[in-house]
Design a protein around this nucleic acid. Structure first.
Length: 579
RNA sequence: GCCGACGUAGCUCAGUGGUAGAGCAGCGGUUUCGUAAACCGCUGGCCGGGAGUUCGAAUCUCCCCGUCGGCUCCA
């Protein structure tokens, strides 16, 4: 990596201005919104005269004009204006969005602006000194974006670009984008025959093929084992419930837009469940509860259905039918902190097992409009913060970003490409216990309201599986692979021996199969195994049959080694053992 | 839902007004092979759907559906 003379944020922000300068030259009368630097690049939003839109063809033109401006060594000139001067200037320029931004700036603040050629912008800076000082950039794609991200506001035309300290860095970034495309879970999922989505089925609904289903089963088995070990009680609940239940829970009030419409059964209306909490609450309420039973942790791998707008669906990462690894913890006030800490421990252990070791935590606190008493919010926020600190985890506070019914922590993971994914979440709920009038009998013989915590670790199995596929680029670790060992006979003479080995491997609890296309050449068989990302190929020819061994190829490294059957079993046991 | 792009064989893609193509996959045959693609042949398409323009539409126009990149929201 070369070291740029200015930091990348400045470079990218200046690139955004350079792009805007090119746009105002090419599209006189364009209004502009905001143009920040973002992770790996920048964007700028415009409103083009006469409702014009950017198309893909416009980008090369704009890019060429940016290079013209660079060749002129157009400077970035800073000026400072009073608020009134700035307002007057941007009104004169007919830049309504800038006027709006200035109106939000406190009265006494000095306002700085930058000029780059024809482009004059409200901007805090800093910037490079001149346009030629941006070593490498590229425009990526146009997009629509609402002003302030609000769909009641005008839709602006956004252009995304990227800028780097050197051409080599830019090339490396573009290569990284291509690599990300190569490991896109939708592509990998098709190549490895893991899952599919079907127009005939409907948007956002997932078909798990045998390979994907095998992986899912392994994940579920592991998940159930860990939950039992930690004192969770596993439950099953139905997919639909009377609409009345959703009225009591409040979901029809605040979640109705995301719920599928009602269906009528014998004059009663039913709804498909978008969440499991009311069901778990009914289990809690099925009899009187004692403080001796708390904490009560009810867990379920629950398929839920939520309506999502068609434009937001995305492979497995954003679907309409998904499986939450859900749990609800009912506990006393004193138990809240240790329970949250226990969830965090479980998150860390499970994510580590799946190969995610970097966790980032967001703590979201009370929003302006909130249900529940102040005392409960303070108690819950303190419990969350102390639990996170007690585990030595770094966290960031998002003030006012909590749900109306309670504060929460969200846990994000970073994948092999450095991308951030939200998975686990732990949320307090002061709303539903109230609505369902939950109680337990305390050691004082009197009824008390329990604390209720919603939590999920993987988030949804669909999304988590998509993230896993991208993280490993489809080459799942041995314990998760649909096929762990493929027996590859050199010629058909070794089919019998191969089949016998498969049976021994399966008896030992491993997933093994024989390469099932007789007559192909060995090279082709190896290639098929490599492309299917089977972790181990056990080649057996005449020599191995005679010696009772296999010639094992590790498809990730290409390394080969001769092993006896027992050595093979040992190796698999070691590699699939929970670390 | 909104903005833009795209939709041709199972997959990846070529074909821009004149008889629908390639590679891979699939199927049949030959080959029985020592670590990333053997050889020969065959099948496969309402060119996303509908309407229009035209002597003639995969190709031009309009509408719809879907996918992709974004906006918003979120597991």
């Amino acid at each position: 990596m070369s070291i740029p003379s200015v930091d990348l944020d400045t470079l990218r922000h200046s690139a955004a201005h350079l792009m805007a300068a090119a746009v105002v030259e090419l599209f006189p009368g364009a209004e502009y919104g905001i143009g920040p630097s973002i992770e790996d690049g920048f964007y700028y939003d415009f409103l083009l005269p006469g409702e014009a839109r950017f198309t893909d063809e416009d980008l090369p033109r704009i890019e060429a004009r940016m290079r013209d401006i660079q060749a002129r060594h157009t400077p970035y000139e800073r000026s400072e204006l009073s608020r009134d001067q700035a307002l007057e200037e941007f009104r004169r320029l007919q830049q309504r969005f800038k006027v709006e931004l200035i109106e939000r700036i406190p009265k006494d603040e000095i306002i700085s602006c930058y000029r780059t050629g024809d482009f004059f912008d409200l901007c805090r800076g800093p910037h490079v000194t001149e346009a030629g000082a941006i070593p490498a950039f590229a425009l990526l794609h146009p997009a629509g974006a609402y002003w302030h991200g609000d769909e009641t506001q005008p839709m602006l035309q956004r252009i995304y670009g990227t800028a780097w300290g050197s051409q080599a860095d830019l090339d490396a970034y573009l290569e990284r984008l291509e690599m990300a495309r190569q490991r896109d879970h939708r592509r990998v999922g098709r190549e490895l025959d893991m899952f599919s989505l079907s127009e005939e089925l409907g948007g956002g609904l997932v078909l798990w093929h045998p390979n994907g289903a095998t992986v899912r089963t392994v994940i579920e088995d592991y998940w159930r084992r860990e939950h039992r070990r930690r004192g969770y009680k596993l439950v099953y609940t139905p997919h639909v419930a009377r609409e009345h239940l959703w009225e009591v829970s409040g979901h029809l009030g605040f979640f109705a837009e995301e719920m599928y419409g009602p269906m009528e059964v014998e004059g009663d209306r039913y709804r498909i469940k978008p969440m499991s909490c009311p069901f778990h609450i009914l289990i809690y309420k099925s009899r009187q509860r004692s403080y001796r039973e708390l904490p009560l942790r009810l867990a379920e791998l629950a398929s839920v259905y939520r309506f999502q707008r068609s434009g937001t669906l995305h492979g497995l990462l954003r679907v309409r039918g998904f499986t939450q690894d859900d749990a609800h913890i009912f506990c006393t006030e004193e138990q809240a902190e240790p329970e949250v800490a226990g969830v965090l421990d479980l998150v860390r252990e499970m994510m580590g097992r799946f190969g995610f070791h970097e966790l980032e935590i967001d703590l979201s606190t009370r929003p302006a409009k909130a249900a529940g008493e102040d005392r409960m919010w303070e108690l819950a926020e303190a419990a969350l913060e102390r639990a996170v600190k007690s585990r030595g985890m770094e966290f960031q506070v998002n003030p006012g970003e909590g749900a109306f019914y309670g504060p929460k922590v969200d846990v994000h993971i970073r994948d092999a490409m450095g991308r951030r994914w939200q998975c686990a979440t732990v949320q307090f709920d002061f709303n539903e216990p109230e609505r369902f009038d939950l109680e337990y009998i305390g050691d004082d013989g009197a009824p008390h309201r329990p604390i209720m915590v919603h939590r999920t670790l993987l988030g949804s199995l669909e999304r988590f599986f998509g993230v896993l596929l991208e993280h490993y680029a489809g080459a799942l670790p041995v314990w998760l692979s649909p096929v762990q060992v493929q027996l590859v006979p050199v010629s058909d003479d070794q089919l019998g021996y191969s089949q016998q080995l498969v049976e021994e491997l399966e008896d030992a609890g491993f997933r093994a199969e024989v390469y099932d296309r007789p007559g192909r050449q060995l090279n082709a068989k190896i290639r098929d195994g490599q492309l299917a990302k089977v972790p181990y190929l056990a080649v057996v020819g005449r020599r191995e049959v005679e010696a009772g061994t296999v010639h094992l190829r590790d498809t990730r490294s290409g390394a080969q080694v001769a092993l006896t059957k027992d050595e093979l079993l040992d190796r698999l046991r070691v590699e699939t053992r929970p670390s």
